[in-house]
Nucleic acid binder design. Structure first.
Length: 369
DNA sequence: ATCCAGTCGT
DNA sequence: ACGACCGGAT
């Protein structure tokens, strides 16, 4: 696992591909032109070396805990909104044990307006589970990570890969889109992650030596970054894409997304999510208020009494709020202690400037020490 | 209205 | 497999 700093980048090693034997691609009747994965790997990884954003959780000195915190915060949340919260979070709770011992009210306040605050609850529950089951350390394997609260298929693979260089198949919304365009020839991947897409993602992984996760991780990080910066959902920057000439979607004439591929909007105004968010915004100020006053002061004139009440009850059930004899506040002490029936959701149970592949290499170094 | 490094319960 | 779950920006 240990890689010397002067070692040749993993991307330079020969990449074997199980798919096509042709040098540049193949013509499949039902799809059209399909590029040779090996060539795409080489191009995208090289592009990543010079174009990756210098994100702190990709720095060589970032701990696995820092990687994990970033992955949770980044769920359905853009990088620019995560950055400041992540910095404060890591400064305040540099290890899982620190977060595990923190008052939940402080955890939710620090989460601020990142959205989906149940993620903060689950992250604290995950930290507590790591203290109990993993000696306060972030576990190394995707299977162990997957068992933690708030860690799904994507996050388990991402933490195992980016923090420990495990050769996991990482598939997020960016990567699904890159695959859909470059290899399947579709404008968008569709709403649901299908088994066919999962199979394709596995087939597309570079086949490196069994013990070398660096190449797999470089491909994961590179494809993700390409989707985030170039192969974006709308107005992709194909003129700056390193594989524009290999892209199946481009080869097909860049057909627009079909109705099937469109993602239905979730809506916001008038939803319970908006009302819950408004309640949480009040509680985050640190205020402790009577149930009636709290519901009355919500800045949502269109929300019915019934909806307000229902949303507060759901927050109490989720462990995002606490009710002390009619006085509502953020939940006080650590995580699971005194909650309503059922308990809280959490329950128990790049080198500085250019970063890029250099960061992956440095991670390898650190792990080898 | 759509998108964003998704997860969870039904 | 589908909907709920936050919030800001385009």
């Amino acid at each position: 696992m240990a890689m010397r700093p002067t070692a040749e980048p993993a991307a330079r090693t020969t990449l074997a591909s199980p798919m096509n034997s042709a040098r540049e691609g193949s013509l499949r009747p039902e799809i059209g032109f399909t590029p040779e994965p090996t060539l795409v790997h080489e191009r995208v990884i090289e592009w990543f070396e010079g174009n990756a954003r210098p994100l702190p959780w990709r720095e060589p000195d970032c701990t696995p805990w820092g990687v994990m915190v970033s992955e949770i915060m980044l769920q359905q949340t853009p990088v620019v909104r995560v950055l400041p919260r992540w910095e404060l979070w890591m400064q305040r709770w540099p290890k899982p044990a620190d977060l595990a011992a923190a008052p939940t009210s402080e955890v939710l306040t620090a989460w601020d307006r990142l959205g989906y605050p149940r993620r903060a609850l689950r992250l604290q529950a995950a930290a507590q589970a790591m203290v109990e089951r993993h000696q306060g350390e972030v576990p190394r394997t995707a299977a162990e990570l997957r068992a933690l609260p708030g860690v799904g298929e994507y996050t388990a693979a991402a933490v195992a890969c980016f923090a420990f260089l495990e050769p996991e198949v990482v598939v997020d919304t960016n990567i699904r889109r890159v695959h859909a365009r470059a290899f399947t020839g579709h404008a968008l991947p569709g709403k649901t992650y299908t088994s066919a897409q999962r199979r394709l993602a596995h087939e597309l992984m570079p086949a490196a030596e069994p013990d070398d996760g660096a190449t797999a991780c470089a491909w994961n990080a590179s494809a993700m970054e390409l989707g985030a910066l170039i192969c974006t959902a709308r107005a992709p920057q194909c003129q700056a894409c390193p594989v524009a000439d290999l892209c199946a979607w481009r080869a097909a004439g860049s057909p627009p997304a079909t109705q099937e591929q469109q993602t239905r909007g979730q809506g916001w105004a008038g939803t319970d999510r908006q009302v819950r968010g408004a309640i949480m915004a009040v509680l985050r100020t640190g205020e402790t208020v009577g149930r009636t006053e709290l519901l009355d002061e919500l800045p949502l004139p269109d929300a019915s009494q019934e909806q307000r009440s229902r949303c507060l009850d759901s927050l109490l059930r989720d462990g995002l709020a606490a009710d002390d004899a009619g006085q509502i506040s953020l939940p006080g002490a650590q995580g699971s202690a005194s909650q309503g029936p059922g308990g809280p959701v959490a329950g128990q149970t790049a080198g500085t400037g250019s970063a890029g592949l250099a960061a992956v290499e440095h991670q390898a170094q650190r792990l080898g020490e």
